[in-house]
Amino acid sequence: MDNVTLTVGSGEFVSVVGPSGSGKSTLLLVLGGMLTPESGEVEIGGESLYAMSPSNRARVRREKVGFVFQTFNLVPYLTALANVQVPLYLRGKEPAEQIARATELLEQVGLGDRLDHKPSELSVGQQQRVALARMMANDPQIILADEPTGNLDPATGDQILGFLETLNRAGKLVLMVTHDMRAASRAGRILKLKDGRVEELNVADDS
């Protein structure tokens, strides 16, 4: 990335598009406090992310950021319920509270009957819904989604985009990286990453 300056306000739904290798996912990791840029800074709510200690950055991720990955990244040896419990455990919640909240979230995404299933026992769509429930566990203000529909069939992809839109309507900032223009067009704002630079696309003109 080269000289990227980007301001995203709370409640926005932004898509980032661009060819493979253009740095979309890298941008997402930098914004999420996972990858220190060689120069420049990232601010969340006025706090400079990379001026913080690694443990403070981890705290910001726990409290304010939720990640969704293309390959779901569920912990393979944990059940759906335990996977959703992980961020709650990291936030310091007691086991009983973790179970209650994780159950509620899995019911919200329609997996109330799959609590004790491991990822290998779930369909890809169900796995992505578990990942969504896990992302929502600590009620983050910022949702960073990396190709959330990339591995899904169109119907399931629509379902996931529907969940993201619902969350956005509830006031969450959603920043979604995708190479699927149809998915990108569901956002209110589209950014194109090319040769390391960001340019804004007109939503209405793009197809």
Binding site: G32, M34, P54, S55, A58, R59, R61, R62, E63, V65, F67, F69, N73, V75, P76, V86, P87, L90, R91, R134, N138
Partner: peptide, 16 residues
């Protein structure tokens, strides 16, 4: 490594 990366993304500290 992927699981560790995920845990870090979810807010696990390096010390954890």
């Amino acid at each position: 490594r992927r699981e560790i990366g995920t845990l870090l993304a979810l807010g696990a500290s390096p010390s954890l």
